[in-house]
Write a protein that binds this DNA or RNA. Structure first.
Lengths: 197, 197, 197, 197
DNA sequence: CATGAATGAGCTTTCATTCAT
DNA sequence: GATGAATGAAAGCTCATTCAT
């Protein structure tokens, strides 16, 4: 009638997820109450329970929806030969996936302690380990394995720890990717002569 | 008389900090209640309040005590010339500092969302930025700046993300340090030809 | 089904206010705990918080509901000419208003120290000052101003300090009103020759 | 050695009473914690317990010390003949007593609900009733009895409700006393023709 | 004459969750 | 597809009080 509730029908589930993720990412999972989510949506707490069985289920559903690109990347990566170029492509695609689900990843990164006790904790960890196993040579030296983990963390760090650094976001993205690819490349190249300096 | 309360006098404050840090690191700050801390120590909640004014103050006091080595490192680092060798030494010392305060750093890493709203949030961020500014060349390329941040994150990641990786802890420590030093070295060397491959 | 919870739906808010006021007036605001209010109503403490945001809000809501007659009296009084007859009528109406909200006024009187720090503290004081300004001649002698304040206090005192005095309540009411009106009358009459005796 | 604790020996009991009364009068009895009193005195809570057995005992001791003038006045009053001049003198002396123990009386007035449950509650009430019985004619009309109570309340009101009124404090004191004496005088004069207007 | 350390009881408030309508 | 009303559990915190030293 007055447009206030326009766009409101049928997509409440989606709107709950959006608001919840925004608040979870901003304040953390524990500090975000269902009351707060409901208030922002101008519905009652009970309405949330019509759409989701528990608070945790809201988070799980968000995770499932947004982490699908990563799943697909993992699946794709596993099917490829373990060449240097594959790894580079994996990192490129990983960068895209992270960008697409930035708030979720920011949330996962900043709420590890909380998430560990939740059902998605292990699932997230599994994905990370699978990513790691795609870009590292299983029999490589410890140092090279570290380089791979480091490449992954560099991508994450780049997403969040560089937010307050001057410079064009796109340039930063590129620089981060470059460093990550470098790391994998060096890992692939075997014992780096530079490290012996 | 029965030894149960032996060692109880005069060090309660310290014991609170120890138990609190262990629980904070294990379960997160929010999920750890004062009741839980008190129970583990076999004292009442009110006893905690005799030693600390608030829950947050417990955390702050732990942070202050354990992060002193980092403060000293920062002070030392700022007084040194910005040579490659200085940076390597900084990373080495940083590794030691992290090892000495591992639970605290694990906690800070895994509870960022929570900590952001606490008084130590900014203090921690400041320290990280100061560390970054010690090992990066302020006018270097974006890529090289990323390498520096990455070196720092590699050290952190190495402390925690490698816990479930096979191998001798001491070897892992060395590998992590090597990769971090490599990154800083490359940043120092200027445009890396390897990155252009 | 068993009648125990009969009359329970839809009027809980009102019942909370009733019980709260009774307890506040009997024991004071601080000494009355939400547990006590909840127990008397046979609901949980949390139920109180469904209807009121804080303990203070319960008191505020009571104050707002019950002090409306006084507000209306003040409004009416301000619109009248400042004649002796107006003042007498004001006191008569004030007596009615006090009787209608006796427990609230008894509470306000006996918990001044507490109320001063609460949000209604100033609002109450304002009302009293406005009442005073309605019945006193602004440029009258100090003595006559005191007479006016005294008239008001006499009404209050009459409500509560005479409770344990023998005599028919209605007679007491009349006597109190008479003395108060006398005071205002004398104030209106200007310098009283009786006072010089 | 440094004078900080000078004047500190032997009068701690007195200092506790002073600070306690100031805080009780300012914030109320319940809102004033022993911690607060101790902090203001720069001693520990336990020290208070060396001087007084309970919180209530601090109040009782203050009451006993400061209300002695009223006791003496009551004793004196009872021994006098019930003439009009006696009553006037009683009111005059009562004014002096009130002035001398203003914070205590302010406290008693503003914390009635609290005090009612304390041991001094009845004692205070008794004193008030005795005062009343000294200045009222026991067989007078209800109206005249109200005048007497009103005279007493006028004295109290004058002490506190006139604080924010413009004018010299001494003038206000006199005006209050004048009105109170007037009231008693009228009560003494029997049926007032003025009241029949 | 006082402190340091602690307790037990209680407080206000918040939360995730439920369910009849 | 949602609301109104409520609950049980727990949280952080404060208080008056105690007692060995």
């Amino acid at each position: 009638m007055d447009g206030t509730k326009r766009q409101r029908r049928g997509n409440t589930r989606q709107r709950i997820q959006d608001v919840a993720l925004a608040l979870f990412a901003e304040q953390g999972y524990e500090k975000t109450s269902l009351r707060e989510i409901a208030e922002r949506l101008d519905v009652t707490k009970a309405a949330l329970y019509y759409h989701f069985k528990t608070k945790e289920e809201i988070l799980v559903s968000i995770f499932e929806d947004l982490s699908r690109p990563i799943d697909e990347l993992i699946e794709w990566g596993k099917a490829q030969p373990r060449t240097r170029d594959t790894k580079r492509e994996v990192l490129r695609r990983y960068g895209d996936a992270l960008t697409g689900a930035a708030p979720l990843f920011r949330f996962m990164q900043e709420n590890q302690a909380t998430i560990r006790e939740l059902s998605i904790g292990n699932r997230f960890k599994d994905r990370m380990l699978q990513m790691r196993d795609i870009i590292r040579d299983p029999d490589a030296s410890l140092t090279d394995q570290v380089r791979c983990v480091s490449a992954l963390f560099t991508m994450h760090a780049g997403m969040f720890a560089l937010q307050d650094v001057e410079g064009d976001p796109e340039d930063k993205r590129k620089a981060v990717l470059e460093v990550a690819i470098d790391l994998v490349t060096q890992a692939h190249a075997g014992p780096s002569p530079a490290a012996n300096a």
